[in-house]
Design a binder for these strands. Structure first.
Length: 477
DNA sequence: AGTTGCTTAGC
DNA sequence: CTAAGCAAC
C-alpha cells in the first residue's frame, strides 16, 4: 500500500492532458486532494527571440483547454510564473502540499531543474515523485547483453518489442477526478495572458490541446493501414502529424501504441517503429547528454565544416535553386512543420551539399518547428550529418533531384510551396537548371530572375562531403 | 532511412 | 542500346 498524502501537486510540463496521465493518476490515487499546476519559466521564455512564437501559443492554448476541463470537474489549473526551483516549493508550502508529482523528463536541462526542485522541496519536508510517462521504457529498462545502452537502432527496437510483449506496458493510467482540488479563490493565481508573458497570439496550422490531439489520433487510425506505403510522399499528407502532440503530451504515447495494437497491419508496425525511433533518441540523449553540444561519434568532433553563412541563409530562406529543398524550407517557415522525408532531404542538403555544420541546421529547426523536441531533433540532425548514433553512413548521400523523382514524382509538393515553378511539368520541375529552354519559357521561369540558379553542383559537393568525412580514422577507446 | 558507376544480360 | 545487377563510396 502506497503512502497517502493529504494534499499534493501534479506539476505538468510537457504532458498537457488529463487523459491517460501517469503522474496525475498516481497523484489522485495517493492523495486526498490534488492541485494541477503549470509553471511558465521566464529563463526559458526569455531565450525565445520570436515573440510570435508557435510553441508558446500552442502551450498557452493547451493550458486554457486544460483549465476549462478542470473547471468542468469543479477544479482549475494553477499557472505560476517564475523559476520552478522557487515557485514550486513556494506554492507547495502555501497550500501545505506533502508531495509533488511529475512526469519524468530526460533532457539535461530538465533533469538539472528537477533535481534542484527536488532538493528545495526536501528542505521543506515535501516529496518529489516523478513517473515514466512520455516513453514506454525508461533508459535503464533497456540494455544490451553487456548491460550497456543501445547505440544502434535495430537491436534497440528488437529489445523494445521483446520487453513490450513481455510487459504489455501500455495500460491506460486512469485518474480519480474526484480528488482534484476545488477551485478556491483564496489561492488565486490567474492564468497570465500571452501578452503578460511578452508574446503574441499566433495562427497555428493545427489545433492545440488534448481534444484536438486525440481527434488527430482517431483520424489517423484510418490512415494507419496505408502508412507504410504512403508515408514517404509529402504531397499525400498521410503522416500522423502527432509529433506535435508527443512533444507537448497532448496525446499519451501509450494511447498511440495501443492504437497500433488495435489496428494490426504492416502500416501499424511501420508507424510503431517510428515511435520507437523517438524513444531511441530519448534514451540516447539521457545516456549521452553531451550530444547536445558535440557529435555522438568521437571521430568527427574536430571536423571543420567549410560551409558559408551565405549558403546557410539561402538554405533557410528556401532559395537554393533545388526545388524540393526550397519547397520544404518554405513550408517550414510558413507553418512550423515539415514532413519527415523532407527533414532528411534538407538536412542532407545542408550538411553534405553545403557542408555546413549540422548544428546550424539543428538550431534553425529548434527555432522554427512547432514539434521541436531536443532528443528527436538532435538525433535526426546527427543521423543526417552521419555523426550520430547509428547514423546514415557518410557515403550514402541524398541526391535532391532523385529524391524529388522518387517521392514527389508529379512535383505537386514543390508546386504547393514554390509557386513560381507551378507551371513546370515533371521532370523539369525537379531541377529547372537542367530543364529544356522551351519548358522554362512556357512556364514563365527565368533562372536567376523568377527562381534562383542552383547555389552548388551536387556531384562536386557530394565528393567534397565524402572526402571531408572519410579522412578521420574510426577508432574509439 | 542512398547514389553512382561499372558490368553484364538481353534484345 | 537499355535494363538489371552489383560493388564501392
Amino acid at each position: 500500500m502506497s503512502v497517502s498524502y493529504k494534499r499534493s501537486i501534479c506539476w505538468v510540463r510537457r504532458d498537457l492532458r488529463l487523459f491517460d496521465h501517469t503522474a496525475l493518476a498516481e497523484a489522485t490515487y495517493r492523495s486526498h486532494e490534488v492541485f494541477v499546476v503549470f509553471v511558465f519559466d521566464p529563463t526559458i521564455l526569455d531565450l525565445l527571440e520570436d515573440r510570435a512564437h508557435l510553441r508558446v501559443s500552442f502551450i498557452h492554448r493547451s493550458l486554457q483547454e486544460m483549465d476549462r476541463k478542470l473547471r468542468e470537474q469543479g477544479s482549475r489549473l494553477w499557472v505560476l510564473l517564475g523559476n520552478p526551483a522557487t515557485v514550486i516549493p513556494q506554492f507547495a508550502k502555501e497550500i501545505q502540499a506533502e508531495a509533488v508529482f511529475a512526469s519524468r523528463d530526460y533532457e539535461p536541462f530538465a533533469r538539472r531543474r528537477d533535481l534542484t526542485v527536488q532538493e528545495n522541496l526536501k528542505l521543506a519536508g515535501i516529496e518529489f515523485l516523478d513517473f515514466k510517462d512520455q516513453i514506454t521504457f525508461d533508459p535503464h529498462e533497456l540494455a544490451t547483453a553487456e548491460g550497456n545502452p543501445f547505440r544502434v537502432f535495430t537491436p534497440f527496437r528488437k529489445a523494445w518489442e521483446k520487453l513490450f510483449i513481455a510487459d504489455r506496458d501500455a495500460a491506460e493510467a486512469v485518474s480519480d477526478l474526484n480528488k482534484l482540488a476545488r477551485d478556491d479563490e483564496s489561492i488565486d493565481y490567474p492564468m497570465p495572458s500571452l501578452k503578460d508573458l511578452g508574446f503574441q497570439e499566433v495562427e497555428l496550422w493545427l489545433e492545440p490541446g488534448e481534444d484536438a490531439g486525440r481527434k488527430r489520433l482517431a483520424n489517423f487510425a484510418s490512415k494507419l493501414a496505408d502508412y507504410k506505403a504512403k508515408r514517404d510522399f509529402p504531397a499525400l499528407d498521410q503522416t500522423s502529424t502527432l509529433s506535435v502532440d508527443f512533444r507537448f503530451g497532448t496525446v499519451s504515447i501509450r494511447e498511440a501504441i495501443r492504437l497500433t495494437l488495435e489496428h494490426p497491419s504492416e502500416g501499424a508496425d511501420s508507424w510503431r517503429s517510428e515511435l520507437i525511433w523517438r524513444e531511441f533518441y530519448q534514451h540516447i540523449l539521457f545516456h549521452y547528454p553531451d550530444v547536445v553540444d558535440q557529435t555522438f561519434q568521437p571521430q568527427y568532433r574536430d571536423i571543420e565544416y567549410p560551409g558559408s553563412k551565405e549558403d546557410f541563409e539561402a538554405w533557410s530562406e528556401g532559395r537554393t535553386g533545388f526545388p524540393i529543398v526550397d519547397a520544404a524550407m518554405r513550408c517550414l517557415n510558413a507553418t512550423g512543420w515539415m514532413h519527415n522525408r523532407l527533414r532528411m532531404v534538407v538536412a542532407s542538403f545542408l550538411t553534405k551539399d553545403l557542408l555546413v555544420d549540422y548544428r546550424w541546421g539543428e538550431a534553425y529547426f529548434q527555432r522554427k518547428l512547432l514539434d521541436f523536441d531536443l532528443a528527436s531533433n538532435n538525433g535526426g540532425w546527427q543521423w543526417s550529418a552521419s555523426t550520430g548514433a547509428d547514423p546514415q553512413p557518410y557515403f550514402r548521400i541524398f541526391n535532391p533531384i532523385s529524391q524529388s523523382a522518387k517521392f514527389d514524382s508529379e512535383g505537386n509538393f514543390i508546386r504547393r510551396w514554390v509557386p513560381e515553378l507551378a507551371d513546370l511539368e515533371a521532370p523539369s520541375i525537379y531541377f529547372p537548371a537542367l530543364a529544356a529552354e522551351f519548358d522554362l519559357l512556357t512556364a514563365s521561369v527565368e533562372l536567376g530572375k523568377t527562381y534562383p540558379h542552383p547555389i552548388v553542383d551536387h556531384a562536386i559537393q557530394r565528393d567534397r562531403a565524402i572526402a571531408l568525412l572519410s579522412k578521420k580514422p574510426i577508432t574509439e577507446s
